[in-house]
Nucleic acid binder design. Structure first.
Lengths: 322, 322
DNA sequence: CTGAAAGCGCTTACAG
DNA sequence: CTGAAAGCGCTTACAG
């Protein structure tokens, strides 16, 4: 049996309350008693049992991070940033991959209700009825999940607008847009809108191909896209994976990038992973994670939080445009 | 205040024990009582508080996964596999990135002692004194952490031997070996040994360049390696990141791969991430994670576990060899 | 400054 | 089959 606080108290000849006070650095404790207690703790090799502590304090010190998959650079970097930031607050990170299954996303809500975790960050796609979010400490990334849920997102519209304009400047005549369509209201939709607005501004026909959000299996979809508009000379992809598959598909068709076909993307160039450079709108992944954790901490502490935080992206010119 | 088990008991007109029995599916409970209780639970919207449950059962249902960084395909895929497998056992996964800091690795030991987690999987590099592992439920990947800690690894020697032999068959005359040197005893060392043995077998001079394990910053090191042995026409890299940097460095020197310089690697071709193919020894990442979780579950349940589990790799020929 | 006691919300022998 | 009680290991008013 592990040694408990009352073992320490007995050994030191004091009450358990005193031991607790020493442990938690309460001011009002006699120096000598403190020393005796500390010695007892050391002697007995005592460590506080966090299960009891949690029950007593009604707080776990754990937040959940829900991602569709962890083996995707965006989510992996996000997890990394979130874990670092959570640590600053004395919190741990529980990793939950939904693997595209809505049940798993609902399950995490149950876990919050059962007090397994103190809060959660959702970086996922599925719909939940807002009432499930009542009294739940949740922060979302990119998806608008209702009034109760603050969202961290990026300047989707402006940055996409600029990127597509850039492609026109670099000589594209017929640019397409390919990407995922979020299943819940999201600022991500503004990427497509920005693209359409640029097309309209320049009197060009919009060539849009979108599909329900997913991770994996985009190869067929980008090929369908290329088949649908065979005379394209460039495309903006709404996400990293899609852009990767697009590069491959275009190359496989014997076209040279960027000579015959230019590509830009939202997201990409996750430097820890790769050295090749793509022209893209880079999201500040680490800051997004940091901000999400900060908002969640505010929620947990019952503080007011903004409904939405919009972070700025940066535009990187790589070798997928002229 | 949230509704508790005694609220339910009161509402249903039974004892809390009965409610608990209904909740936990104990056989010996009258059908009618059960219905009444279930109705009360439903009516009151009761959810068991897991903090109390954990304290009572002395079990968290959480295991920790310690990785150096999560934004590396091997570790990300490992985390994915581990989370899936843990879920099967009703366990959650706590993600801890050591970020190369030994303190963080020690910290997780403390967490186990404080009962924050029921066990841990270490996929990291640092040394710990074996005594820290006494009474700790720990499973390791690739590193031999002492008798108490079962290790999951791969057939490092045989697969490297075969890979280097293959490079010779493909015409390499002067093959080098570049890679990380684990900081603790590890079967990973057998990669270098296998390389050396192949060299000796063929009467070739071993060209070895190794460095302390790290993630990031390999670019300089692979260049030092190339400078040290300017007449190499091929190299075996002990890991994925090193191989990536090597490809870049070789290319930057104006050499063509595989015509002028052939490369093979331990690890690589993480299909979820990339489509390009490298000649490499592929580790069964998902199974490694699965096995590690299984061993940990055995440890947690006080069962006997093997000291070591060796999984087979597969050899993939990509376009970095002739 | 400090001890004794209550209580966090469960589960599980123990009687009946 | 089921209720009352003890106990998991802490923290925190409450007295003194």
């Amino acid at each position: 049996m592990a040694v408990t606080i009352s073992d320490v108290a007995k050994y030191a000849g004091v009450g358990v309350g005193t031991v607790s006070r020493v442990l938690n650095g309460s001011k009002s404790v006699n120096e000598d008693t403190k020393k005796t207690v500390l010695r007892a703790i050391d002697k007995l090799g005592y460590s506080p049992n966090s299960m009891a502590k949690r029950l007593r304090k009604q707080r776990n010190g754990v937040i959940a991070l829900m991602v569709p998959v962890i083996y995707h650079p965006f989510f992996a970097l996000f997890a990394d940033g979130a874990e670092k930031e959570a640590t600053k607050y004395g919190y741990s990170l529980m990793l939950v991959s939904s693997q595209q299954h809505v049940e798993r996303e609902n399950e995490i809500i149950d876990r919050m209700i059962r007090k397994e975790v103190d809060g959660a960050i959702f970086v996922t796609h599925y719909v939940h009825s807002p009432e499930e979010y009542k009294n739940c400490r949740i922060v979302s990334v990119d998806r608008n999940l209702g009034d109760e849920v603050p969202v961290v997102t990026t300047d989707n519209y402006d940055s996409t607008f600029k990127a597509v304009e850039y492609m026109l400047e670099r000589g594209c005549k017929r640019i397409g847009y390919v990407g995922t369509r979020p299943l819940v209201p999201s600022d991500v939709l503004l990427r497509e809108k920005a693209y359409r607005d640029v097309m309209e501004k320049h009197g060009l026909e919009p060539l849009v191909f979108n599909f329900a959000a997913l991770h994996g299996g985009e190869t067929k979809l980008v090929n369908d896209f290329l088949d649908a508009y065979p005379d394209m000379d460039g495309a903006f992809a709404s996400g990293y994976t899609t852009a990767q598959r697009l590069i491959e598909a275009v190359t496989a068709r014997g076209k040279k990038i960027p000579q015959d076909f230019q590509i830009a993307s939202y997201d990409g160039n996750f430097s820890a992973w790769e050295e090749k450079r793509m022209t893209c709108v880079e999201q500040p992944v680490a800051e997004m994670a940091q901000k999400a954790v900060q908002l969640l901490m505010s929620k947990i502490n019952g503080e007011e939080t903004p409904d939405k935080v919009v972070l700025n992206t940066s535009f990187t010119v790589g070798n997928t445009t002229k």
